[in-house]
């Protein structure tokens, strides 16, 4: 048996063990999208295992901070760690800096145990001031709009116009889909905040016309515009949306009621000489 010495195998043993590990490591670093994919798949812990907060690449540091925000346990300590990285990353003028600033505002708005809405609003506003054309600044304006509608109203009390502050922000949003999202939120907030219909219905119509609302929200929106228009006496608009609904959802549970309403508005229009 001595002739079949295990010495050569022993000699290469470390290589045999380490080889595959090294190969795996090499393969990992060759895939720059791995961390983004893990984040998109909602696997922040995988990113934390792959990356470090002091990674040489700014993009890697941003991915690490995003993962720190998303990973459990979501303690304030972890949020502060993420924020420290984001503060450093937002010192720039590129899109990554804007993304870091946006995420930092999100920490204050949503991820701390005791959110600081005023601070979040200040960060969104600052970002929009510095980099108004950035996607992240534009998205931040949508979130700032939500804060203004519900949590940080410029005005309060019965009869106060709670939508105006968000409408001012709307004018600064250039991206059509983000404008649509804020329009939709202003419209829905108008109902929740008991605002006059004339103030919020145009926002719902604008959101619907922008298109691309997904899930049940689209169906709800079409019914809603039709029904609210009917309630407001805008028969022509009500007919337009009832017809739109029946074309898109002819068999839905609400179709029977919509058909009845359509017949009613057609009758009204005929009475007014507008068949």
């Amino acid at each position: 048996m001595r002739g079949l010495s295990v010495y050569p195998a022993r000699k290469f043993l470390p290589l045999l063990i380490l080889g595959p590990l090294l190969a795996a490591g090499a393969a990992a670093s060759a895939d720059p999208d791995r961390a983004w994919t893990a984040l998109a798949d909602n696997r922040p812990q995988d990113v934390l295992r792959q990356l470090r907060p002091d990674a040489p690449s700014r993009a890697d540091r941003l991915a690490w901070a995003a993962a720190r925000i998303g990973a459990q346990p979501a303690t304030d300590g972890n949020m502060r760690e993420a924020e420290a990285v984001l503060v450093e990353l937002e010192q720039g003028t590129d899109e990554l800096a804007a993304e870091a600033a946006y995420l930092r505002a999100r920490i204050y708005q949503l991820h701390l145990n005791e959110p600081d809405f005023a601070k979040a609003a200040q960060l969104y506003a600052g970002l929009a001031q510095r980099q108004p054309g950035s996607h992240w600044a534009q998205l931040g304006l949508v979130k700032l709009g939500l804060l203004k509608l519900y949590l940080l109203p410029d005005v309060s009390g019965p009869g106060a116009d709670r939508l105006a502050a968000a409408e001012v922000l709307l004018a600064r949003i250039q991206e059509p889909l983000l404008r649509r999202d804020l329009n939709l939120q202003i419209g829905q907030a108008g109902i929740a905040l008991n605002q006059p219909q004339a103030r919020f219905l145009p926002h719902l119509i604008a959101a619907e016309q922008a298109g691309g609302v997904t899930g049940n929200a689209q169906e709800d929106l079409i019914v809603q515009i039709g029904v609210l228009s009917e309630r407001g006496g805008d028969w022509a608009r009500a007919r337009e949306y009832f017809e739109k609904y029946l074309a898109a959802y002819p068999l839905n549970v609400r179709a029977y009621a919509i058909r009845r309403k359509l017949a009613e508005v057609n009758h009204r229009l005929a009475q007014e000489g507008r068949p």
Binding site: D33, W36, T37, L39, A40, N42, A63, A66, E99, L103
Partner: peptide, 11 residues
């Protein structure tokens, strides 16, 4: 929030 950042990073 991290999911959005993930999609934004992917081409």
């Amino acid at each position: 929030d991290p999911v959005i950042v993930g999609w934004a990073g992917l081409p």
